[in-house]
Simulated scan of single mutants.
Amino acid sequence: MNKKLIRFDWAMKKLLRHKANFGILEGFLSELLRFDVSIESILESEGNKQDEYDKYNRVDILVKSDKNELMLVEVQNDSEVDYFHRMLYGVSKLVTEYIKEGEPYGTIKKIYSINIVYFGLGQGKDYVYEYKGEFVGIHENDILLPTTMQVQNYDVAKVSDIFPKYYILKVNNFDDVAKNTLDEWVYFLKNSEVKESFKAKGLDKAKEKLQYEVLTQEEKKMYDRFQENRRIENSIIYTAKQEEQRRIARSLFETPLSNQDIAKHTGLTLEQIEQLRNEP
C-alpha cells in the first residue's frame, strides 16, 4: 500500500532547503524543464519574506543552479486575481536583486519562474502551461533574431532565450492518470503520494525522505499546525463562499427566476434554495 507523504509546499518550507534533500527538488525541476538540473545553493531574497497570511497560503524557494541560473519555485494555495502580476513582479525583483551595482546588464542571470497553483488561474483545461513568447513582426510576421555578437556573447539561439520562462502547474485540473514522468510529479503534488510504479527523477528520494514518520517530533508538530491552518483557512473560504451564494440567491427571489435557474446562477442545490425561501 502506498504511504501518504507530506505536502510538497510544507517540505519546501522545512526540508528541501537542506543540502541532503536537494535531490528531490532537482528531480522535479529536471522533469519539468526537460534538462538535468543540479542545485548549487538555496538563496534568500526579499520575496521570501512571509507575513502571517503567507504561512499557510504560499511558500517559495529560490534555487541557484550549477549553471548560475535562478529558479524561483512558488506554491500558491488560495486564489489571487492578480497572481499573473505577482509572477511578473517576482521575476523582475530577482533581476534587480541579483545584479550588483555597476555591473553590465549582460551579467543578469537567466531566471525560471515555476508556479504551482491549487486554484483556477486564467482559463484553460490543461494542467501544465509553458510560456513561449516570441518577438514577431506585425507586418512581415517575422521572428526577431539576435545578432551574431549576441549569439556569441550570450549563448542564445533566439531573443526569447534571454527572457524568463514561466510554468504554471494547475494541479487540480490533473485527472490523476500519470502518462509520463512529469505526470508522476504532478500526481505527487496533487495527492502527496508516490506510487510504486513511478520512475520520475527525485520521486524516489521524496518517497524516502518526505514520509511523516521520519520527521522529528518538533517537525511533526509544525506540520500538524500547518495542516490545521489549511483546514481552518479552507473552512473560512467555504463559509464565505456559501454566505455570498445565499446573499445572491435571496436577491434573486424578487425576480421571476425559478429555483432551478437560481441554483444555476448561485451553485446552491435545489434543497438549499428551498430552505432559503422558507426562512423568516
Rank of each mutant, 00 (worst) to 15 (best):
I114T: 05
K55F: 08
D224F: 07
H265S: 10
E103I: 09
Y105W: 15
T148Y: 08
S92M: 09
S45K: 01
I143Q: 14
V159F: 09
I143N: 08
V186T: 07
E274Y: 05
L215H: 07
V81H: 05
Y98D: 15
F22C: 02
Q150P: 09
L215C: 04
K3N: 06
R231F: 07
Y187G: 02
F28D: 05
Y56S: 11
K165N: 07
V63Q: 03
A206G: 10
K4I: 08
N180I: 09
N173A: 06
E274T: 06
M222Y: 13
E74V: 15
L215Y: 07
N173R: 09
I42A: 00
I108F: 14
E233N: 01
S45R: 06
K100T: 10
I99D: 08
Y223C: 01
M149W: 12
G23S: 12
L94Q: 05
S197Q: 15
F198E: 04
I138M: 14
S113P: 00
E228C: 09
L70H: 02
Y167I: 00
T269A: 04
S192G: 04
L270N: 00
V214P: 01
H18G: 05
E218N: 13
A240S: 13
G124M: 08
Y212M: 04
Y118I: 02
I24Q: 02
E184W: 04
V81G: 11
R86S: 04
L32V: 01
K195A: 08
D142P: 04
L16K: 05
Q275D: 05
D66W: 00
M1F: 09
E103F: 08
D161H: 13
S235R: 14
D183V: 10
V128D: 07
L32P: 03
S160C: 13
V75C: 14
G267C: 01
V136H: 07
F253L: 00
N57P: 06
F35N: 09
I61L: 11
V194D: 03
S251T: 15
E52H: 09
